Amino acid sequence: MTRTHRWAATAFTCLALTGIAAGPALATAPADGATTGHPTDAGFLRASHQGNLTEIAAGKDAQKNATTACVKNVAKVLVRDHTKLDADTRALADKQGVDLPVAPSKEQQDTLAAIMAKAGTKAYDTAWLNAQAAAHEKTLARIDNQIANGKNAEVTAAAKAARPVVAMHLDMVRGGECRDHGAAKPKRIHAGNGGQAATSLAADVPVVLAVPALAVGGVLVAGGAFWAASRIRRNDNR
């Protein structure tokens, strides 16, 4: 399996909307620790990458389909910050020799699909905020586990650098209540030597997320294909 950034631009094309249900766009990752020598470090990098992909995809969708300015503002912050965090994660994984999954987990995909089904309604905003609160709570727990139990100093340093950013995100959505805090910029995101500018990498983030089609019975590819998905939803509503 090649490393994520090597195939990001061509990993998947948009799946044909044929009406035949397709499986999740996932690849089987090597067993944790297969390349780094310690399961906690490798597992943290892989889970962080999947989490970043999910937050980027969810944030992009919310910027288009949320009904309140607050949720759209928070979504913009999530896309910005998780794009930067994922650039660092991918660079560090490459340095450590850790192969990354090609897409979010099935559970993450299913959650996003359920939220997308409520697009343009108040229920969308509520579901989105609740999902983000739960996801960021899990991410903080994963970060704290890495800080306490990780063996690789660089991976642990990345976890420490990411923690205040994730904590800020959680504060924005805690309890399913939206608080955009003026879309405050975090003080730290990059860690180690792998940081790269988000502006040059945004298009390279492989947000390749297969979700069930909401009205045509096929599969929509989220992330880079969100524009196409929104057009399909609009056409189906006519």
Rank of each mutant, 00 (worst) to 15 (best):
A202I: 15
E107K: 12
A191P: 11
A198H: 13
G175H: 12
A135D: 05
T111D: 12
A123I: 08
L85N: 14
L129D: 02
L129T: 12
T199I: 15
A91C: 10
H181I: 05
D99V: 15
A134D: 08
K187M: 04
M168E: 00
S105E: 13
E177Q: 10
T156V: 11
R163T: 00
A197N: 09
L92E: 15
K151Y: 07
A153I: 11
A127F: 11
S200H: 15
G182M: 03
W128N: 03
G120T: 12
A135H: 04
A161I: 08
A123H: 05
Q108W: 13
Y124T: 08
V98T: 09
R163S: 00
G175C: 12
H190F: 13
D94G: 07
V102F: 02
A114V: 03
G195Y: 07
L100F: 06
M116P: 02
D99C: 14
A153V: 12
V98G: 05
V173A: 10
A157G: 03
D204P: 03
D204F: 11
W128P: 02
N149H: 11
A148H: 11
S105Q: 13
S105I: 15
Q96K: 14
Q96D: 12
E177L: 06
A191I: 15
D180P: 09
A197F: 11
A162W: 03
R188P: 01
A158T: 09
V173I: 13
A157W: 01
N149M: 05
K118E: 14
G192W: 09
A159L: 00
C178Y: 08
A135W: 02
E137Y: 02
N193Y: 05
I143N: 02
A167I: 00
Q196L: 12
R179N: 14
A113M: 10
Q109V: 15
G150L: 02
Y124V: 12
A113G: 04
M116C: 02
N145I: 09
V205L: 12
A153L: 14
T126F: 07
A202H: 14
Q196S: 09
D171F: 01
K187G: 06
L170E: 04
D94P: 04
A167D: 01
T126V: 13
L112Y: 05
K95W: 11
H190E: 05
A198C: 15
N145P: 07
K138T: 01
A162H: 03
H136F: 02
Q196H: 12
E137W: 04
L100H: 10
T111I: 15
H190N: 06
A153N: 11
A127E: 15
R179M: 07
A184V: 13
D171V: 01
I147L: 02
A191H: 06
I189Q: 03
A203R: 15
G192C: 13
A141F: 05
G194C: 08
K122R: 06
T121Y: 04
P101Q: 06
L170Y: 05
D204Q: 12
M168Q: 00
P164H: 00
Q109M: 13
Q96R: 12
H169F: 11
A197W: 02
A157V: 07
H169Q: 10
A203T: 10
S200V: 14
T89N: 14
K95M: 14
A134I: 06
E177A: 02
A203D: 15
I115T: 13
K106G: 10
G194T: 10
D144L: 04
T111R: 10
A191Y: 07
A113Q: 04
K106M: 14
A159F: 00
H169I: 07
A117M: 08
D144M: 03
A123P: 10
A198D: 14
D110W: 09
Y124C: 06
